[in-house]
């Protein structure tokens, strides 16, 4: 189980009698899962007897640093490599492949290579483990 809170997407919950105001923040601007997240929040809270209002918080922008320790463990357990520390400061141009120290979520080997900075969802990069030869996804640091 990986919750919205684990992902750092859930920013706040305020309860007023039978009404709940939930504030969430998108991971990437075009994340198509936002509609599903809002939808699930409204439905789960309705099931629990609450009328939910879902608000969007755009600032501060979501950071992969907000993924909780439990969220990181859960990602790794599901074969997805969790992110390292997000970069800070001015944005430099980088013409070399992004260097990350990470281990294969399946066999633990650090002998991994980047396949692509872009993966099946906006938040992930693609890697390949050269020890067990399996491909895996890595949540990018932003």
């Amino acid at each position: 189980m990986l919750t919205l809170e684990d992902l750092g997407v859930l920013r706040s919950v305020e309860e007023y009698d039978d009404r709940v105001v939930v504030t969430i923040t998108p991971t990437y601007s075009g994340c198509p899962a936002m509609a599903t997240m809002r939808d699930d929040l409204v439905h789960r809270l309705a099931d629990a007897g609450f009328e939910a209002e879902v608000r969007v918080s755009l600032s501060p922008a979501w950071s992969s640093d907000w993924i909780t320790p439990a969220g990181r463990e859960s990602l790794a357990r599901h074969g997805i490599s969790p992110p390292g520390a997000a970069p800070t400061g001015p944005v430099g141009l980088s013409l070399l492949p992004t260097r990350r120290v990470l281990g294969c979520p399946r066999c633990g080997s650090s002998e991994v290579e980047l396949t692509s900075e872009f993966g099946p969802t906006a938040c992930k990069a693609m890697y390949r483990c050269t020890a067990c030869l399996e491909p895996f996804e890595h949540v990018k640091e932003i």
Binding site: Y28, S29, P60, A61
Partner: peptide, 19 residues
């Protein structure tokens, strides 16, 4: 807020194109 978020994304786009 839109810009701050966009910076993180377009950084990747520029690196990709540059490489």
């Amino acid at each position: 807020a839109i810009a701050a978020k966009g910076v993180k994304e377009v950084t990747y786009h520029r690196d990709y194109a540059g490489r």
